[in-house]
Amino acid sequence: MHWNGKDSTVYQAQKEFIDTAVIPLIQIDGSDEGFQFAASAADFTLSLANVIENQFKGRIVLFPSFSYTKSQDKQLVFKDWQEELNKASFKHIFYVTSDREWSTMGEEQNIIWIPSVPLDSMDQKMRNSVLEDQLRQLIPIFAKKWAN
């Protein structure tokens, strides 16, 4: 499901089955060195989030990405999201990111870190197949987290 009006009606009615929130975490970098890399990583993460949504449509709600700058306190941000989404009674909350810094926050936080692949110069077909490949590796990760 997407985070929109139509899908959220389905969510409200099927909470029992749609029990997982997915939030892409995107770093904004305005510096000369970082700008392009961050933009490309954002493209990758969001595209991947979309294929994840397509695969698990009936079990997840894909939220709009959370964008932050380097200096923001990650722990704090994290806590806020967690608190807010707990109100909606999601059983699982997964974060998808290609920013390595989150990956140091620990497994139990359900952060799925995927190093970004530069999709920029690829045509649609190539992009799709790269994303499909990544998705195939993610399916067991999701399945495992759901299982416990």
């Binding site: 099927q14 695969q55 698990f56 009936g58 079990r59 399916i139």
Partner: peptide, 13 residues
């Protein structure tokens, strides 16, 4: 497309 809530099904998964 799964007829339950629309996920993608896979062969022999």
């Amino acid at each position: 497309v799964c007829k339950h809530l629309g996920c993608t099904v896979n062969w022999e998964a």
